[in-house]
């Protein structure tokens, strides 16, 4: 297995995992977190992702989505009247509309959130190293397979479906305007992703029946706690309408990260040989870990958490703790050496 060892670059999956964790940090922190996150994503795409002539750089893709960002900006900054400090007032004849400073900040925050989420998805799509991690589960973990395929794997499917759609348009010499493009793509994606899922059914059925390949009952039970915790908390807080969207979005990401961790822990370890913990890995983990811990303990909600005001807290106060927990588990996992 000598050759097999040498092909691993342990830095890559770890960087990817850290990037996923970033999502938690920017749900609660300031503009500098966004800047730092964007820098890391850019750095990853520029220097860690495989150079590929078939890949269009993310930044040139995202700029074509300006109508979405414009809509988000108008939606959050103008339509949702959140905040107290009035920045300026729109006036058209007798109709006036206040735009608050908090709303603008909220809108910018959301737009950056979208940019970062799409960027992570883009990197996941093009990150071939991720594919060396098992994306199917066996035996008792079958339900997790469905969850994985419903979250991150589905994103990858949709992105590859869009690539095929764009190629078909070019090959046929067809030009669609923006609105017909969206409608036609929706029809095409529905047909093709369903077809793809349908083709996976025999494989999934076979795996479901295969009970003797790396199974573990407890992981499955633990992972189910994650969505239950989040849905339960949102109901307890009685603020469903306010936070709903962000919660669902973050929940999907959280499930994806939990899946990733479980895959790595349960199957990647079994499938791969001994890893070498390089100095660069240690430096990255130390710097990133320290930064994360410092940021977390600067937040007011976490202070409240330490004073056991459990149910009065904002929902976001759970994220840092889960982030820290996952992060420590990952470090411990990667640090272990197989006998």
């Amino acid at each position: 297995m000598e050759n097999y060892q040498s092909r691993f670059t342990p830095l890559l999956p770890r960087l990817l995992f850290c990037m996923c964790l970033m999502i938690f940090t920017y749900t609660m922190l300031n503009l500098w977190t966004h800047v730092f996150t964007l820098f890391l994503l850019w750095f990853y795409e520029k220097f860690a992702l495989q150079k590929d002539a078939y890949r269009t750089p993310y930044l040139s893709q995202i700029t074509s989505m300006y109508p979405l960002f414009l809509f988000l900006f108008l939606f959050y900054a103008v339509f949702l009247q959140t905040g107290r400090i009035s920045l300026f007032t729109l006036q058209i004849s007798n109709w006036t509309w206040d735009v608050y400073a908090e709303s603008v900040i909220y809108a910018v925050h959301y737009i950056l959130l979208f940019v970062e989420t799409f960027w992570v998805t883009y990197l996941l799509f093009h990150e071939r190293k991720m594919e060396t991690v098992q994306t199917f589960f066996y035996g008792n973990l079958f339900s997790l397979t469905l969850l994985w395929n419903g979250s991150i794997q589905q994103w990858k499917n949709i992105l590859s479906c869009k690539t095929r759609f764009d190629q078909a348009l070019v090959a046929r010499g067809a030009h669609l305007k923006r609105f017909p493009y969206i409608l036609t793509f929706f029809e095409y994606a529905l047909e093709n992703t369903l077809k793809q899922t349908y083709h996976q059914i025999p494989t999934l059925m076979r795996m479901w029946k295969n009970k003797d390949f790396y199974t573990s009952g407890w992981v499955q039970k633990i992972v189910w706690v994650v969505p239950v915790l989040f849905i339960g908390t949102s109901f307890l807080k009685n603020e469903i309408l306010v936070d709903q969207y962000l919660e669902i979005q973050t929940m999907i990401v959280l499930i994806g990260i939990a899946m990733f961790y479980v895959i790595v822990n349960e199957q990647y370890e079994e499938m791969s040989p001994l890893r070498i913990w390089t100095w660069s890995d240690r430096v990255i983990c130390f710097v990133w870990g320290s930064w994360l811990v410092v940021q977390i303990f600067k937040i007011d909600d976490v202070m409240g958490f330490r004073e056991l005001k459990f149910f009065n807290l904002s929902l976001w106060s759970y994220f840092p703790w889960i982030s820290v927990g996952l992060f420590l588990c990952t470090i411990l996992f990667f640090y272990q050496r197989r006998p």
Binding site: R164, F165, R172
Partner: peptide
């Protein structure tokens, strides 16, 4: 010049059913 291409995976070129 105007150009069209028949991809080797022809079924993926159908936009509609």
């Amino acid at each position: 010049i105007s150009k069209n291409m028949l991809l080797d995976d022809a079924p993926s070129m159908f936009l509609y059913k």
